[in-house]
Amino acid sequence: MSSEIDDAEEAVRVRFTVNGRKVACEVAPRDTLVDCLRNALELTGTHAGCEMGACGACLVQLDGRAVHGCLMFAVQADGARIDTIEGLSESGAIADLQAEFHRRNALQCGFCTPGMLINAHELLSRLTEPSRAAIRDALSGNFCRCTGYEAIVDAIAAVADARAAKASQEGSPG
């Protein structure tokens, strides 16, 4: 066997916690995180679009922060906690966002939706009442080829309002 890296695709073992489950898999160092999630772990909710950081379809949470699955290699995530759209859906953490996207037609083909939701989720965890400009700004790295964005911004704004209303209800005695 040749020791030339060009010929021999070495495999490395990585372990991470994906959607709360400990998993181990064999990857080549050049496999991106999004490819590993989709191909090895069959979590195909995370989409691969441009594979160069431009479209935002591949967003996942790495240790609680939104990152591009196409802009890191799976080996780099060894030891990390990864949450994908599947995990966030099952936990119910974004159920209100999903319902509002659905209600307002904020998705058509759905290719961009997982990335949009992960970004929106992070935005709303940082800012409770973002302006429309702040929402647009947060989505500046997410392309949607179907909706024209307006319905997406509406949905996120509506969820922000609903969450704020709920929080103030819970906060006020009686």
Binding site: I5, P29, R30, T32, E51, M52, G53, H68, C70, L71, M72, F73, V75, Q76
Partner: peptide, 25 residues
């Protein structure tokens, strides 16, 4: 590789093709 936000696209486009990637994170 630090954040990889410029390097990974350059690798994907094969503008760069190093033998070893050294992760400094």
């Amino acid at each position: 590789i630090a954040g990889g936000q410029s390097l990974v696209p350059a690798l994907a486009l094969r503008l760069q093709a190093p033998r070893i990637l050294i992760d400094i994170n």
